[in-house]
Structures are given as structure tokens and as C-alpha cells.
Amino acid sequence: MKPIVAFFKTVPTVLLLLALLLTLPISADGVFTERSENGGTAYRNRLFFFGESTTAHLRSRGVLEGGTSTDRVIAARSGTMMLNRRTPSAHVVEPRSGKEMTVTEAVAALRPEILVLSFGLNGIVGFLSAKESYTEPYRALIRSVRKASPETVVILQTVYPVANDPSEWKFHQSPAEINRGIERLNGWLPEIAASEGAFLADTASVLRDGDGFLRKDYSADGIHLTREGYEQVLLYLETHMAEVPE
């Protein structure tokens, strides 16, 4: 009798452990793009970008293929974008045709091999007061990208720091407070990436000075980057290449 009792005590425990293992979330640590060989311009030319004005300025700085006429940046005519539930339906200029259409339509038209997303500074006050106002629209955006172009590899970027430069400052909060908020947002990005099968590139890490502010030599106006700042971001992406399926 005892072996039978032992069996029935053991099996449910084993089954329970197996069930727990299978339902454990994907490790958020595994989403970061890891150090790789330098993919250089060849890799850079496979990237498309969509995000806030810090992304749109990639075009004006001329750091991508095509220079200031690059067709690798999806942006609204206003040159900026805020992440919310309406972002997939927001009107942007599809860079190859020059036509205005929704974000989802632009992604479907371009079928980017790799799409680099960057959101967080615009609307940060609201995001910090309600985490889901950041995480859920970001997830929805990634899903809309996947629906429009299933093969696209999505890379999220950590939110860039802001500079300690009050002269052009537009926020009510100080740069230090904004950077603390940015770090909170960056702490949420791994779980977003993990849950949506996206990569996360810690590009913000190459932009910070010793105090966590955007380096002055990378800062154009406290928020947007200089050409050199964007070159550092692109170098990070090129040396931390995402795995793209064959």
C-alpha cells in the first residue's frame, strides 16, 4: 500500500512543478541585444525607425543611407509622435512613396526587415502616473506591426536621457526628475519586449555622462541628439545586432 500512496503523492507534485515551469514568463533578461561583431553599414541599412522626434531627427542629421532624404524613418509630418492607443492609426508619411497613411499601413507597405521603435519621453508624466498607459499601448503598437508585417524583427530602444541644460528646458519637472522617470520607464521595457517577442537595445547607455544626464556633446537642445549622438546610437545597434531569422 505504501508504494502506491507514495506514487500518488509524488506524481501530482511533479505535475504541479511541470505546470509551473511551463507557465513561467519568458525571462526578461534574454531580450537585450547582446554584444556582437560590428555589422557596420550593411546592418545599419537593414534598419527602419519609428518613434518620437528623437527618432525623426535621424533624418535631419543625415546619418542613415540616403542622408537627409533617407527612406528609413517613418514619421508624422509634424516630426513627432506620442505613444498611446491611437498610435497605430496615427497618420505618418510612408518614406518611400511620400504618401500619408496610418502607421500600420506604412509598415505593411515597407515590410521592414528590422524596425527600431523608440517611445517614452512624450507623455512621460502620464506614463509615470499609470504604468499601463505606457506598457499597453507599446504592446498594442508592436502587435499592430506584427499583424502588418509578421516577418519584421522589432527592436525597442531604451529611452534616451535628457541633458542637464535648463536654458532650453520645456518640462515643469527638472532634468534630474525626468531622468529618474526615464529610468523607471526603461525598467518596464524588458517585460514589454519579452511578452511581445521583441528585442531591447540599451542605446541610452552610450549617451549618458557620469551623472546619468545626456552628454553635452551629444545634446542638441537638451533632448534631441547631435549627429555624433546619433552615430553612437547607430554604432551600438551595429555592435549589438538582433538575431534575424534566415
Partner: peptide
Amino acid sequence: DKTYENNRAYYDSYI
């Protein structure tokens, strides 16, 4: 009210 308060910095800056 939330839309106004949470996004005022962004709107005041760009639009």
C-alpha cells in the same frame, strides 16, 4: 482632465 494634465508638457512644446 487626465489627457490635459498628463500631456501638457508635450503639447505646449510641440503644438
